[in-house]
Design a protein around this nucleic acid. Structure first.
Length: 877
RNA sequence: UGGCUCGUAGCUCAGUGGUAGAGCACUACCUUGACAUGGUAGGGGUCGCUGGUUCGAAACCAGUCGAGCCAACCA
């Protein structure tokens, strides 16, 4: 079957130079209008569903967003062109601490539950009211708002931010289906998250407990293990003596002397000759004279500090472990605000052999923060030596400014520690791209130390759907929580009353109280697959789409997002959430540091889209392999722009030639098609394996080295109809149009604007967008030209001849357009036989009028050498 | 301390057993009827280092140095 006949289009009818900004605007609107990327909910074609990362809506975008989201888009476009039904939603993660903090700063407000609700309150951004300088000088406190007012302001700002994100994502050509847009604070997301909780409760995976919990004193909330990071901080060993009951003493070393009042035990290694005689005896703390038990533990490292140490509630996680194992008492002194609480020595909880002295000392540190308390305690202690400064890693909440404390609080947990093996098995069932990223998941899962704490003492989040009854005596009965029904969801227990109660019973004896905590933001984020399929609220779609096809994400959140999502799918349905996970690398600044807002090295993407065009920016993103960190380099965008420009110009040439009726018959044309056919096969395979950067690289290489720089030059005269027969002319036209159609579609996933423009020039009215066209296939070649009769080596030898003669001209410092009156070429006889089949094209492209062959069997086959050359006139001086 | 990744041209990166590659940058030349946001050519690398396997190693193995990430350690 031939390529349909059509006449050429005059060159003047094409735009002289493309205006990328204009094209982006035009096609962006057109695709939206025509629903080009709308999910086809009907049909038998396989589904390609993407669990897109909802970016944190924090007001600023950087090139890293564009980088990874474009890589996903490229996969989506490949799948769509391969005939799959692509389900490509885009969500926004607007629930959580980063948003809360941004809202606080933006409006200069804070949430103070209990503040009366002010209907219709609509504060302007603080920047419109006063300058940063005024704000600092006047020390204006943040305005306290009710939770409802606060959440309203959060929503106002996130809506505004989301529009910015959407504009940028649209501009860069993401083929997301905007009808599937979602937000993680929306009603639907709340319903999904709360249902997840109820399901976990019912299956016995969730529990609440009053237990040591990681706590951030600034945000005043519990945090999870996955949200911690180590920071290297200065500290100091302080050495001082404990007395032993019945005589004797020993010296302990600690970096946290301020916790002395919270000391509940002393530990040494059971084999340590220096201390093992003390095991079982009772020590007495200095200053507070509290009796504490001395015990042995193999966890103690004898050559660290003094080899004997105090256990406090709680200095670190080892303390928690010892506290549990040794059943030590609880003496908590640090409060939720990071200050020392009021306590009384000489009580059952805080025993002391000298309560008066103890209380006197404690009065000095009461209500002080940890740092101040340390200073005071150190001054009072009889230190054995000057504090010995050290540099040590300290655990911080990743968004916090002070080290986390460990406090005993009532929190909700999801039980995971007993399911490590199963989680690992589920991780194995998923295909990781690249494969080695699976090791990060494995590593994290194997080393998991705590169950997942899912409750947060914050305001802008999904409320935990629980109430607690209040008994007749006015006690809250946490052990008897009341849950909503599925139909009630979503609920806000602080505003809605549970079934069977009236709102007036809130806080009353015999009534109820609503849970105030909200979920960890990952609790909702880990449900994105359920959220986009609809889960219980769209069971048909959920059935056909779960597990989803692909989760794209970056590697630093494998331990959170990927991990929790896998855990949730496993706990709820015993399924993996997706069949593939593709992990993108990071964008590094030129010094190879990760770009991040806190480092101030962030590059905003819009300026690069303006400067180089969206397709050029996409080219940069598409050039990077999955899992590989890439230094930010605008030079790559320039290359992308050059490619787009070349595609425009080559298309103009081809389309200006017309496409006469006929079939490809010339050896050169058949050779090109044979090579193109191999490329198509290769690129289909590569894209199936998520190796899209390689697919782009090979397509691009072919385009430049086999098509524009060479074939187009060789075929020109024949395409103009100035060489060969009418059949030869038709062969050229057919080949050019067919090859262009193939190449345009192969570039379409990478350069959607450029290719759509070219496709628009070449397509018939009835044909759809290039992005809905079929990706090139072997079958298409079969239909077009039947059996593959092409000999690829003929194009190779023609290119070698063209290059060699051009090289000769360059060495002569003359124009390549200069006619050659006579040339002598040394060549292997067999190579000559091939070259003669395409010599007419080579001669016309190099303007050689007369050639003499020096057949030389000692020449390397496939090469040739110019031994003499004469030009028409003297070289230009 | 353990796990993973990386080390190739001035720069950004391809290349997993067979004569070291691309683009950018650099140099020279050329306005030729798709394209000067172009074209034709050119110079430039002991593939971090040391051993080993192999006829043959940038690639495989062992070790080593350096960089990054994830975790462990946190008294």
């Amino acid at each position: 079957m031939q390529f349909p006949e059509r006449s050429g289009r005059s060159l003047e009818s094409f735009p002289k130079a493309p205006d990328f900004a204009e094209l982006e605007k035009h096609w962006g609107a057109e695709w939206l209008k025509k629903g080009t990327y709308t999910y086809p909910s009907q049909g038998d074609a396989p589904i390609f569903s993407i669990d897109t990362p909802p970016p944190t809506v924090s007001g600023s975008l950087h090139v890293g967003h564009i980088f990874s989201y474009t890589q996903t888009d490229i996969l989506a476009r490949f799948a769509r062109m391969k005939g799959m039904r692509v389900h490509y939603p885009q969500g926004w993660d607007d629930n959580g601490l980063p948003t809360e903090r941004r809202v606080q700063n933006y409006f200069h407000i804070r949430c103070e539950p209990g503040t009366p609700y002010e209907p219709g309150l609509n504060l302007p951004p603080i920047s419109e009211v006063m300058t940063d300088k005024e704000l600092a000088e006047k020390k204006v406190p943040q305005r306290a708002l009710s939770r409802r007012n606060f959440v309203e302001h959060c929503l106002r700002l996130t809506t505004q931010d989301e529009k910015q994100f959407k504009d940028l994502f649209t501009r860069v050509g993401l083929s997301a289906d905007w009808e599937l847009e979602y937000v993680t604070i929306g009603k639907h997301a709340q319903r999904i998250a709360q249902w997840s909780f109820l399901d976990l409760m019912q299956k016995g995976h969730a529990y609440q407990v009053e237990a040591p919990t990681l706590w951030d004193c600034d945000f005043r909330t519990a945090v999870a293990q996955a949200e911690l990071e180590d920071r290297d901080m200065p500290g100091a060993f302080h050495e001082f003596d404990f007395e032993v009951e019945g005589g004797g003493s020993f010296t302990i070393a600690t970096t946290r002397p301020e916790l002395l009042a919270a000391c509940v035990g002393v530990a040494c290694h059971p084999d340590d000759e220096r201390y093992k005689h003390l095991i079982g005896k009772t020590a007495v703390t200095p200053l507070f004279s509290a009796p504490v038990r001395i015990f042995g533990s193999t966890h103690v490292v004898p050559d660290k500090g003094t080899g004997i140490l105090m256990v406090c509630t709680f200095g670190d996680q080892t303390d928690v472990q010892w506290w549990r194992e040794e059943k030590l008492p609880l003496r908590q002194i640090v409060g939720r605000d990071g200050r020392l609480m009021s306590i009384q020595f000489g009580t059952k909880e805080f025993p002391s052999k000298n309560p008066e002295a103890a209380n006197e000392v404690y009065a000095l540190i009461e209500k002080k923060n940890v740092k101040q308390a340390q200073k005071i305690i150190v001054e009072r202690l009889a230190l054995k030596s000057a504090p010995r400064p050290i540099q040590h890693p300290v655990k911080f909440y990743e968004k916090g400014d002070r080290p986390v404390e460990i406090l005993t609080t009532r929190q909700w947990f999801v039980r995971l520690l007993d399911k490590k093996e199963k989680l690992l098995q589920f991780g194995e069932k998923i295909q990781w791209h690249p494969e080695f990223m699976k090791a990060r998941f494995r590593n994290w899962t194997e080393n998991l130390g705590l169950d997942w704490c899912v409750s947060r003492q914050r305001f802008f989040g999904v409320p935990i759907p629980v109430w607690y009854p209040i008994d007749a005596a006015g006690n809250q009965r946490f052990e008897a929580p009341i849950f909503p029904t599925k139909e009630q969801l979503p609920v806000d227990p602080s505003e809605d009353a549970p079934l069977g109660y009236q709102e007036s019973q809130r806080g009353q004896p015999g009534g109820f109280v609503g849970e105030l905590d909200v979920f960890d933001t990952w609790f909702t984020s880990s449900l994105t697959p359920q959220l986009v399929t609809g889960w219980e609220w769209n069971q048909k779609r959920h059935q056909e789409m779960f597990p989803m096809t692909l989760r794209p994400q970056s590697h630093e959140i494998i331990r959170t997002w990927a991990f929790y999502t896998i855990a949730k799918a496993m706990l709820h349905e015993e399924k993996i959430p997706w069949n593939h996970i593709a992990v993108s690398g990071w964008v590094l600044d030129p010094d190879r540091k990760k770009m991040s807002k806190s480092k101030g090295n962030v590059v905003t993407p819009i300026q690069f889209i303006e400067e180089h065009g969206a397709d050029a920016v996409r080219y940069w993103a598409g050039s990077a392999r999955y899992g590989v960190d890439t230094a930010f380099d605008p030079a790559v965008m320039k290359v992308g722009r050059r490619l787009a420009m070349k595609l425009f110009n080559a298309s103009k040439f081809v389309l200006s030639r017309g496409c006469p009726a006929g079939v490809p018959t010339c050896a050169l044309d058949l050779a090109l098609l044979a090579k193109l056919r191999v490329l198509v096969k290769r690129v289909r395979e590569l894209s199936d394996q998520y190796e899209t950067a390689q697919a782009l690289s090979e397509t691009e290489k072919f385009f430049w080295s086999q098509f524009t720089d060479t074939y187009l030059e060789l075929v020109k005269m024949r395409a103009w109809g100035e060489q060969g027969t009418a059949l030869d002319h038709a062969s050229a036209g057919q080949t050019l149009h067919f090859a262009l159609s193939i190449l345009v579609r192969m570039f379409a996933p990478f350069l959607p604007y450029t290719t759509e423009t070219v496709w628009d020039w070449m397509k018939r009215d009835s044909e759809p967008s290039v992005h809905l066209a079929a990706f090139p296939s072997q079958g298409e070649f079969q239909t077009f030209m039947g059996v593959d009769a092409g000999r690829p080596e003929l194009l190779d030898v023609a290119i070698v001849a063209l290059t060699t003669i051009n090289q000769q001209k360059t060495e002569s410092k003359t124009s390549v357009a200069r006619p050659v009156s006579r040339i002598v070429i040394a060549i292997h006889p067999e190579t000559l036989n091939d070259l003669l089949l395409v010599w007419a094209e080579v001669a016309s492209a190099t303007k050689v009028r007369s050639v003499e062959w020096d057949k030389n069997p000692s020449m390397e086959p496939g090469t040739l050498k110019v031994t003499a050359v004469e030009y028409d006139a003297a070289p230009i001086a």
